[in-house]
Write a protein that binds this DNA or RNA. Structure first.
Lengths: 228, 228
DNA sequence: TCATAGTAAGTCGTATACGATTTCGTACCT
DNA sequence: AGGTACGAAATCGTATACGACTTACTATGA
């Protein structure tokens, strides 16, 4: 349906360069879970694997470090960033803020066609609930919000959203799991959000709704973590 | 008084490394205005100047690119990022959002001592108005907000604030100038903000006040730009 | 057995070198 | 004179090489 994925982001640097290729390759492996958190990223090994020398690989790793996907320690090396619950909290909280702002800023620019597409994605999400397909659910969730952000007037804020998504993706296949019941509520909130946008609600209300939509997932996680 | 400056930030990577030194050096020159927007950053020249080889310099430039301070083009080179009014708008708008959030999150954790320190800084800012010292005014303004953010519970958000400040710093000594009257209003808003924090006002109210405090500067700039 | 020093392996950090690409100037042709 | 093609200079992109640092292992002595 929608081909919006987490990878078609800024594409900032010099396309075609080996540095860029290495960046994309390593990032893909992290996001897809081939390199799990804690995995040791040895420059020489990656370079050999990709057929490059270590220099462009090194540059790629540093970029990933800047995005928070890997941790780098001098004279020691890089590892895929961990699943630290504190980091999760930070990232989710930050996302709630920037997604809220992005949604509010975009809302006035969303046309009815986009609304319809978002509704279709949301319907598909509801189906995922029945088949229990968390991976696809997460993908569709990003598609949904990507549609809302399509005409976001501030690319900086959009970039921050994408960075947050990338961080979360790196720990998708980790110990964190769906909180039962939360996913269904999320789908309902999507519908409510679309209604707000359609009716041209106040920007503050839209922002608040979008922010709570994200932070509720965080709250659900925290509540669950407390019971364990 | 306060020694909080724009340069004592994350200090993320490997301290002591030449790559890090080059990063700090080039960044300082941009922020201080030695390298003005549009300035051509030639790797070999910088390397020779610092006494390093090009490799660590290259890494430094790429980091600065990730922060938006320089623009990099494949096989061409890097230049100090420009003064594009659109970029200014994006940055200010983003700052209004993340500063607002940072202020609201920090407010409950600010003690009376910090409040007093912030007041002292704000008094000094008022004096700067009389002596007309815009550079010091800007510095004190950052000191003021840094005090409020001292115990910000979310380092990610704080990092976003710092990034925004850095971007603005790179165009401080450019065509952008103080908007007459705005600076004085800003000092008054600081006092109002402190009152809100002292009285334990609602987080939403604090966030809104802090956000408007920043976006009002943007509005003043836009209004002025329109008249020219 | 445990602690410790010494050593070897692994890995990173940076310098140097060279091929690739762009840019700019100049000469030639129309 | 204007435009195009060619060539040289400048600069970047990457490979290779080597020194520096960290880590883990091993052997030795208490």
């Amino acid at each position: 349906m929608t081909e919006t994925t987490i990878t078609d982001l800024p594409a900032p640097a010099t396309p075609g360069s080996k540095s860029e290729q290495a960046y994309q390759a390593v990032k893909a492996r992290i996001v897809e879970g081939a390199y799990t958190p804690g995995y040791r990223l040895v420059l020489a090994a990656i370079a050999k694997d990709l057929g490059f020398s270590v220099v462009p690989v090194r540059e790629a790793i540093r970029r990933l470090e800047a995005e928070g996907l890997v941790t780098f320690e001098r004279n020691v090396g890089a590892t895929v960033s961990g699943i630290d619950p504190t980091e999760y909290l930070y990232t989710m909280q930050t996302l709630s803020i920037v997604e809220g702002a992005a949604t509010a800023l975009s809302a006035p620019l969303i046309d009815s066609v986009a609304i319809a597409r978002a509704r279709a994605v949301n319907r598909e999400m509801r189906q995922c609930l029945d088949h229990f397909d968390p991976v696809r659910f997460t993908q569709l969730n990003q598609d949904f919000h990507s549609i809302l952000f399509e005409h976001c007037p501030n690319p900086h804020i959009l970039d921050l959203v994408h960075r947050g998504w990338n961080r979360l993706a790196s720990l998708r296949s980790s110990t964190f799991r769906f909180v039962p019941g939360r996913a269904r509520a999320s789908v309902d909130e999507h519908e409510a959000l679309l209604k707000l946008i359609e009716t041209g609600a106040d920007a503050d209300d839209i922002e608040k709704a979008a922010r709570i939509h994200r932070s509720a997932t965080l709250d659900a996680y925290l509540a669950q973590a407390k019971t364990i």
